[in-house]
């Protein structure tokens, strides 16, 4: 793998993560528990899809095969998407969405902080911009984790179930393979394994303050980063890609 190929794949993974989570959050539109939350979830979805647009545009540039960011979104198949499994999981109830948000935003907070120092100027500047947004995403998820964890018996039980159910998808966030190894050597990315302890402390503290119990350690699922997804992704793509696939000659 060349450095260019590694950078393409790395940027694609980041872009897919933003895209798929943005898609999921956009599904909440007009379904949120309260109007203010409809606004908040859409806000986060807008940040993520905007970020996906910038990252995938950059990925397409790195690739230099005359593909656009829209080609990458609308014309790739299931096995070519490289987002982590956590982010394609269904919204579930509001607690499930908050659990997904807290796991991911805690990770992104640490990741983008490091990435803002990347030797790759484009990634560094994108990460710096995202960092402001991710701070809000984290705050939003943290506050809801507290309210639901320390709210009613029902909300406590739902929140506990949500963090337990999604826990097996958190390991994949910290995996590295040849892609990262190449880029770590050039100080373009850091070794995400090194972020795990900080992440765990952050999450454990948040869970504890919310009067919840830390999920039991167990087997961690993997596969999204190499394009082997849960069954959820196919449905996301069927919906997302339908128009450009049905009318390949049309411009919108």
């Amino acid at each position: 793998m060349t450095k260019q190929e590694a950078l393409f794949k790395y940027t694609l993974r980041l872009g897919d993560n933003s895209l798929i989570l943005g898609h999921r959050l956009s599904e909440w539109s007009s379904y949120a528990p309260i109007l203010e939350e409809d606004l908040a979830l859409t806000n986060i979805a807008l940040d993520l899809i905007g970020r996906a647009q910038a990252l995938l545009k950059y990925a397409a540039e790195i690739e230099s095969k005359a593909r656009t960011e829209d080609d990458l979104v609308f014309k790739r198949a299931e096995r070519q998407f490289l987002n982590v499994l956590l982010l394609e999981q269904p919204n579930g109830d509001f607690a499930m969405t908050i659990a997904r948000q807290i796991f991911n935003s805690a990770f992104e907070l640490l990741l983008f902080e490091e990435l803002s120092k990347s030797k790759d100027e484009m990634l560094a500047s994108l990460a710096t911009k995202c960092l402001k947004e991710v701070k809000y995403h984290w705050r939003h998820a943290y506050d809801w984790l507290q309210r639901l964890g320390d709210g009613t018996d029902e909300s406590h039980a739902r929140m506990q179930k949500a963090i337990n159910d999604l826990w097996m998808f958190t390991g994949e966030l910290f995996e590295i393979d040849e892609v990262e190894t190449i880029l770590i050597n050039d100080a373009i990315v850091i070794d995400t394994r090194e972020l795990h302890d900080k992440w765990l402390t952050k999450i454990s503290d948040a869970i504890k303050t919310a009067t919840l119990t830390h999920p039991a350690e167990g087997y961690m699922q993997t596969g999204g980063r190499i394009g082997i997804h849960t069954e959820n992704l196919g449905f996301i793509l069927a919906e997302m890609q339908y128009l450009p696939r049905a009318y390949p000659d049309a411009k919108w």
Partner: peptide
């Protein structure tokens, strides 16, 4: 918000998706 929200996940370009999402958010506002 409903008739338009129903098309956010199927918007045919990233640009169209962002605009529609922002529009539906405006409506909530």
């Amino acid at each position: 918000m409903q008739p338009e929200g129903n098309w956010i996940t199927r918007a045919p370009s990233l640009r169209a998706k962002l605009i529609l999402l922002a529009k539906v958010q405006d409506e909530a506002g």
